[in-house]
Amino acid sequence: MSRIEKQFNVNFWGVRGSIPCPGPNTVRYGGNTPCVEMQVGGKRLVFDGGTGLHVLGQSLLRQMPAEAHIFFTHSHWDHMQGFPFFTPGFVKGNRFSIYGAIAPDGSTVEQRLNDQMLHPNFPVPLQIMQADLNFCDVTPGEAIKIDDILVENAPLNHPGEAVGYRVNWHGGAAVYVTDTEHYPDRLDENVLWLARDADILIYDSTYSDEEYHSPKSPKIGWGHSTWQEAIKIAKAANVKTLVIFHHDPAHDDDYLDQVGLQAKEKFPGAIMAKEGMVLPIPVSAPLSEIVPVSHL
């Protein structure tokens, strides 16, 4: 087994929520919308296709032919707007398996990606892509096996619905939970289950508690959580590293610096998501120990 085939790394290509916000005040954390790549035992798993997917795609042009499994949490613009600009998707010989849950209106992830590339929204259709695209429907609560990688999922609390993912490989676990709103009176059981004893939990921390409950402009019902709630989840689920993610476009680098300091005081394993950040996960356990855990 090669060195790459023994590694489990999490790479951050887009960490911002809602809209891209490039500029001098977002240089250190980045302004691209969500895209997280996990390199797991020689396989490439990608979570969400915000504008960070374009940046990832440019890096893949040096590694052709490219192959990846792309998982969408949902189809709000900031999580799929990079897909039409994913250059490797237009290159014959590349292969991409694309996963997403069926939306409340019955549309599949293929239909939603297709629709965003139709006139008058986009000049060329999805069908112009020359790569081999294999679309797969995700059933909430039903695990997906990719060779010896186990990908679990659970529904999240978000307008229009969303799905969170947990990647298990040889005793290591990384969890991607974005675009979810916490409950006022309890911790979300689905999120706790996904995050259980995880090495890394990437969590939607768009707001602070003060912003969320602001008398002038409350964010209750907008479908996002806070960094304080992220810490509650991380502690309850025995998470090793909490990654504060999906930064509000109004939060500049200096603001995020302060959030990082406050979060670390409350939970030493808390870090702020930054574009270009790479987090390794230690692995050791044999495959026989990695089995689905019943939840739903």
Rank of each mutant, 00 (worst) to 15 (best):
I4R: 15
K6N: 15
F8R: 10
N9F: 06
S18G: 03
P22E: 08
P24M: 08
N25L: 14
T26M: 06
G31K: 07
N32R: 15
P34T: 09
V36W: 00
E37P: 01
M38I: 10
R44M: 11
L45Q: 13
V46Y: 03
D48L: 08
D48T: 15
G49M: 06
T51D: 09
H54I: 00
V55I: 12
G57E: 04
L60N: 08
L60D: 08
E67K: 14
A68E: 05
F71A: 04
F72T: 02
T73Q: 15
H74V: 01
D78F: 12
G82R: 04
G82S: 11
F83N: 01
P84C: 05
P84I: 03
F85T: 10
T87K: 15
T87A: 15
P88G: 07
V91H: 10
V91P: 01
Y99K: 03
A101G: 03
A101Y: 02
T108A: 07
T108M: 04
T108L: 06
R112W: 02
L113Q: 10
D115W: 03
Q116R: 15
F122Y: 14
P123C: 03
V124G: 01
P125K: 08
D132Q: 14
C136N: 15
P140R: 05
A143C: 13
I146F: 11
D147A: 14
V151S: 09
L156C: 06
L156P: 06
H158P: 10
G164D: 11
Y165R: 00
R166W: 00
N168Y: 09
W169T: 08
A173T: 13
A174M: 12
T178V: 14
T180W: 00
P184W: 05
D188L: 07
D188I: 03
E189V: 09
N190L: 02
V191E: 08
V191L: 13
V191S: 09
L201Q: 08
Y203Q: 11
T206K: 01
S208F: 02
D209A: 15
E210L: 11
E211N: 08
Y212G: 09
W222R: 15
G223W: 01
T226W: 00
T226R: 00
Q228I: 01
A234W: 00
A234M: 02
K235I: 06
K235V: 06
K240I: 06
K240R: 15
I244P: 07
F245A: 04
Y255C: 04
L261W: 03
A263E: 08
E265F: 05
P268C: 04
M272E: 09
M272A: 12
K274I: 00
V278S: 14
I281K: 03
V283P: 10
S284R: 15
A285H: 13
S288I: 10
E289G: 04
I290M: 14
I290R: 15
V291W: 05
H295R: 15
